[in-house]
Write a protein that binds this DNA or RNA. Structure first.
Lengths: 348, 348
DNA sequence: TGTTAGCACTCACTTAGTTCGAGTGCTAAT
DNA sequence: ATTAGCACTCGAACTAAGTGAGTGCTAACA
């Protein structure tokens, strides 16, 4: 029993129909709707084979067939036609860039919103992260009589400001000197590398201003904390409720629970980061509450190692073809915006 | 027909029971469960009066009674007993502070999480915002050969960094001078006040470095944009699905939709900002999809005009007493953390 | 030998009818 | 003024029958 051409045609018909209607597909439906030139009886025989081979299954005896995870996998890997974006979809994606977005978190939110509106699935997106643990610059700025501003910039241009309040602060020149020293001392340094040796050296260098030591170390530690918390933005969670596969409230609830836990999403996105495109179908998901879902992720790159990921979650009966083409389009968009964002000030 | 003591006792019984069970309450239930010393027939007569007065209603003839929005209003304003926090609840709230939280957005997220876990309702919280439109400090910092860092601090210590890329940058001294000038020129200035006069003056002052003008204005504009986008964090949306009043998926969906639109939440929180505590019951809500919900908000203050708001959304059959006491506890907590956060570096 | 028409069978879903019980309102007695 | 008693209402839960989309199998056909 081999997967001949006809079987593939039938499987494709079943998947297409099921993605569209969410109803088990019967032999007569296929015979009528898709002109394969064979009778429903023949189709029944082929379907029986396809079931034996594991590509489709019956929710209960005497019902039509639905694709199995394995069926979807075959579809995604070999059968699916790459769809072109429609004019409207393209325009919609363009709309995101054309607006004047100048902050990353806003861009992320708008992107997630647009994707969930366009696909009717749930979207999440992680901010671009690269060499975040490595310090590029440290600067000190006197703010007023009792406070100094410490600015830390990491390799991937992630910035963190810290106002340090002190009872007495050094004069401007001295602050400048200390700032220069800090910058020299920590440039290119990984945050994790800061150990007792460095601290003692720093303490020595600060001299009479060693009161600064504690707040500086605190600021470094906070930056490290912040750097580790990758921001994830989600949108369109409500869409889940529209799918018949989640009309069982308890299922919807447990999926919601999972989606609300950012850690899970972060892990998921991190795992997929190495691939440009990643499709996880049903039981391929490691998280229990997502065994009925498919997750499609795409990675966007700002530079070779500064990357972020966009993910779309939906029922396994998901419009893979649409989602993949929309994701590809969106990745290009985001990369364009991010690039323009990092040099649109370069003009003087 | 007056609202005598007995009627009030019965109303209270109905509300308590309904909050607990979500089932319409009948006269016999009250007679058995709450020892009012009167028979079910008498209770029936009183209930008939209470219904006529508008405090309770029947979902359908020959069912028990449920409280009306007006009934809940009376309850919240006059009948409800202020609950003390249980030991566990207190410990839970303490848990938030005791952890080492040093970033506002993280604090907001953890607070929202804790509240939704504690109350089983949906929580949202807005970051503290005060004189955000007014500039406190502007600073310039040379970063490398082609970029200058512009730091803008607003009156409420909201900070925004901008890396300005330039083809050629002035030497350090000149940057310092320009920075000082900017600081003088813009200190105490509302972002909206920056008009053509200021710009011309600035352009003159920059002289040969007028290439800086455009990026600086851009940065100011971006800061203004960012300042206007009040961050709102939500948690526990999944809890909505657990309430029988939202077992109708379409209702749950439309509420979700509303909760996902941050603008709506921001407006809601802004409206309640002047009051310490604000309760909106059912139809008192202006948003259509929240007519079946109650919203309780509490305002926390960092200083006189730097405030944020915490809100809890649930069905009108909400445990007002618990939510209010938990909110009060949490407000105190947040204020404590925020205060410690703004001077915990003061020690040198 | 592959294909097809025909048929018996399965099973979820719908509809209508039935019963059950929690609840009410009214009335008459206390 | 209160209460016991009773007829009545109406949603919810259950049951039974009917419907129809679907299958698998068999026998006939090209």
């Amino acid at each position: 029993m081999s997967l001949n051409d006809r079987k593939i045609q039938i499987l494709q018909a079943i998947i297409n129909d099921y993605i569209e209607t969410a109803e088990p597909v019967g032999s007569r439906t296929i015979a009528k709707k898709y002109n394969l030139g064979i009778s429903s009886a023949t189709i029944r025989n082929e379907m029986s084979d396809l079931e034996e081979m594991g590509f489709i299954m019956q929710p209960h005896a005497s019902s039509g067939r639905i694709p199995s995870d394995m069926g979807y996998r075959l579809y995604v890997d070999h059968l699916m036609k790459k769809r072109e974006l429609s004019f409207e979809e393209q325009r919609y994606l363009q709309g995101i860039i054309s607006r004047d977005i100048s902050q990353i978190d806003y861009l992320m939110e708008e992107t997630a919103k647009a994707l969930s509106a366009l696909t009717n699935y749930t979207t999440f997106i992680s901010e671009p992260v690269g060499q975040r643990a490595r310090i590029k610059q440290i600067r000190l700025l006197p703010l007023d009589m009792t406070s100094v501003l410490l600015v830390i910039v990491t390799e991937d241009n992630f910035m963190k400001n810290h106002v340090m309040k002190l009872n007495s602060i050094p004069d401007e020149e001295r602050i400048f000197e200390i700032g220069m020293y800090l910058n020299r001392a920590f440039q290119g340094c990984a945050l994790q590398q800061i150990d007792q040796t460095v601290i003692r050296e720093l303490q020595f260098e600060l001299g009479e201003y060693k009161g600064l030591l504690k707040p500086i170390l605190k600021a470094l530690q906070i930056t490290m904390q912040a750097a580790e918390r990758v921001q994830v933005h989600m949108s369109g969670a409500k869409n889940i409720l529209a799918f018949p596969e989640f009309s069982d409230i308890s299922k919807a609830k447990s999926l919601f629970q999972t989606l609300e836990e950012k850690d899970v999403l972060v892990t998921l996105l991190e795992e997929c980061k190495s691939n440009d495109l990643h499709v996880l179908i049903g039981s391929e998901n490691t998280v229990q509450s997502m065994k009925d879902c498919s997750v499609i992720t795409a990675t966007y790159k700002l530079s070779d190692d500064t990357r972020g990921t966009i993910g779309i979650v939906g029922p396994t009966r998901m419009d893979y073809s649409q989602v993949i083409s929309v994701l590809n389009g969106m990745v290009q968009n985001i990369e364009k915006v991010l690039r323009s964002l990092s040099d649109n000030n370069k003009d003087g």
